[in-house]
Amino acid sequence: MCWPTVRVVEVTVNDSYLYAIILLMPLTAFMVIFQANPYHALVIRGILGAVSALVYAVLGAADVALTEALVGTMLAITLYAIAVRSSLVLRLGILREDEPEAENLDLKRLIADLHSITSKKHLRLELVPYEDRHALQQALWKKEIHATCSRLCQPEEARYETTIRVEYLYEILKTELSSPITSLSYLNLPTLEEKH
């Protein structure tokens, strides 16, 4: 009986560099796996794309290498960067009068605290200013922002109140935010299914 033999590449003594090139691929793949920061992982995914295109081209699959370079390296990374940028974000609504200026030290310190917490979780903190309290509440209800931060009318020990509508963000901030400037609260908004 004769088995069909599939010969992809004929490795001779002269082609021993092939092993070195092919070894680079699992090396970079492990680098992608062990990367915690999503943006860093994307850059290393680009490196993996370049290396795998090299491996495919050297093994003789020029079309696969071309697809990997065009789709895997260029398109996928760009689209993923945009997706990560718009999803890994905490949009915090503030009043325009409270905007962190030089004299408003409390809010400045609070936002610096929030920034250090969110950057630990690889989240981006985006400040969205609104004209008045009504617009701020409306934006939270319409789910344009994830949280609001505004000055309390009757200041007690906490001068600001932060309302968060996303539960896991509230959990993170409740455990990590130790600032006495603000009080934290969680607002459970009805989901779309419940409304209809």
């Binding site: 680009g46 050297v58 020029a62 370079a69 390296t73 260029m74 990374i77």
Partner: peptide, 19 residues
């Protein structure tokens, strides 16, 4: 393979610029 190399050379830089 040479043509693929040239294309990867230019595409790699384009991806870098976009990113």
């Amino acid at each position: 393979i040479g043509v693929v190399g040239v294309i990867i050379l230019s595409v790699g830089n384009a991806a870098l610029m976009l990113l």
